[in-house]
């Protein structure tokens, strides 16, 4: 193919134009590492149902969503597909039970949906391919890890769970002395 001046100018113009478009697209993109903004809202709602705020902070206050997102972009990336499918499944069940998406349900209705997932009897096309109970266990375990684990992993913001449990942090502890017995 002959590469004349006109074609060259067109290519350059397209390239420069494309480069300008990239940041514009980036501005609309998810601010999360793995989740879409919609996914993040859904996971946030699920985790808040698993550890709701009462007199102490809940999963939302402790930033559990940040933990799960961070881990799915890192060490727990093997669970990505399970989340992709599972989150679709949660909304399918929600619609089947209450006609609306999970995030807009009343807290009691959200609990009912999660109970259905936990029992493994949840309705929805997705759950024909994978177990709803397995997905519930997965997100429950990740919620616990994000809430009770060290903040350096992305969750337990402000040491929320440590404060709730009355754990001093940073711990007041002297040298780890392993004196040999004589």
């Amino acid at each position: 193919m002959k590469y004349n001046r006109r074609r060259f100018v067109k290519t350059v113009a397209a390239g420069v134009g494309g480069a300008f478009l990239l940041p514009a697209r980036g501005a609309d993109a998810s601010v999360w590492r793995f989740f879409t903004n919609a996914d993040a809202r859904l996971v946030d709602a699920i985790t808040e149902q698993i550890i709701p705020a009462d007199q102490d902070p809940g999963a939302r206050d402790a930033g559990v969503i940040n933990f799960i997102d961070k881990q799915l972009a890192g060490r727990l990336r093997r669970h990505r597909q399970a989340y992709r499918d599972g989150l679709i499944g949660v909304d399918e069940t929600s619609r089947a039970m209450f006609g609306r998406e999970f995030v807009v349900l009343a807290p009691e209705q959200q609990t009912e949906v999660l109970k259905a997932l936990e029992s493994g009897k949840a309705k929805g096309e997705t759950w024909r391919k994978q177990s709803s109970a397995a997905f519930f266990r997965l997100i429950r375990d990740h919620t616990m890890a994000g809430f009770y684990g060290g903040p350096q992993h992305g969750g337990n913001r402000g040491y929320a769970s440590y404060k709730m449990l009355g754990l001093d942090y940073p711990q007041i502890i002297g040298q780890n002395r392993y004196r040999r017995r004589s």
């Binding site: 930033g63 940040n66 992305g154 402000g158 040491y159």
Partner: peptide
């Protein structure tokens, strides 16, 4: 800020 960066980013992310 306590905790610093992670929480700050997380705050921004979860802020609705």
């Amino acid at each position: 800020l306590s905790p610093p960066s992670v929480a700050a980013v997380s705050d921004r992310r979860t802020a609705t």
